[in-house]
């Protein structure tokens, strides 16, 4: 997850971390939390401590839990839509600390200011999940079998 984020860091809000979380959660359920927080730890070591760390401590849990509820379903389209919704709501989910520290005005400003980036995040998540879900799932299945 960390390597993919670093490689794609020059593309604003385009990432496959969401897709990897979806696949790992489907395969490992609760144990996927370990992967998620190792990723968060790597990010903290790379970029240091700031407001975004608070966001990262809870935001990926939303996606993880959503997938956990339906992990038996094996549908690229369903996970693409979930990933798209998550991407669209990413900014809103990250705005919680701003609502708490700066009130409604700052929170709404944060959400509205990131609107276009959330649209980009939504589209990127939808397309990447739709086209890469099957291939990455097969790779994950092979890796699990060889262990």
């Amino acid at each position: 997850m960390y390597i993919s984020q670093v490689i794609m860091s020059h593309l604003p809000n385009i990432e496959i971390v969401s897709l990897l979380i979806i696949i790992i959660t489907r395969k490992f359920g609760y144990k996927a939390l370990a992967s998620i927080y190792v990723f968060v730890g790597c990010e903290i070591l790379t970029y240091g401590l700031s407001m975004w760390v608070i966001n990262y401590l809870y935001v990926w849990l939303v996606l993880w839990f959503s997938v956990l509820l339906i992990r038996k379903i094996d549908s690229p389209l369903i996970y693409s839509l979930i990933s798209a919704i998550f991407g669209l709501l990413f900014g809103t989910l990250c705005s919680v600390p701003y609502f708490l520290t700066g009130g409604i005005t700052l929170g709404v400003t944060y959400i509205v200011g990131g609107f276009w980036f959330d649209i980009l995040h939504c589209s990127g998540n939808f397309v990447s999940t739709l086209f890469l879900y099957r291939a990455l799932t097969r790779i994950m299945d092979k890796m699990i079998k060889t262990q």
Binding site: I73, L77, I78, L81, I82, I85, L89
Partner: peptide, 26 residues
């Protein structure tokens, strides 16, 4: 699965419309 796809598609559309309205109002 078809019902789930429709429900998620609708949810996505509603969220996009809600965001667009929030953006336009502000």
């Amino acid at each position: 699965n078809k019902k789930t796809v429709i429900a998620l598609g609708l949810a996505l559309a509603i969220i996009i419309v809600a965001f667009a309205a929030l953006f336009i109002m502000n």
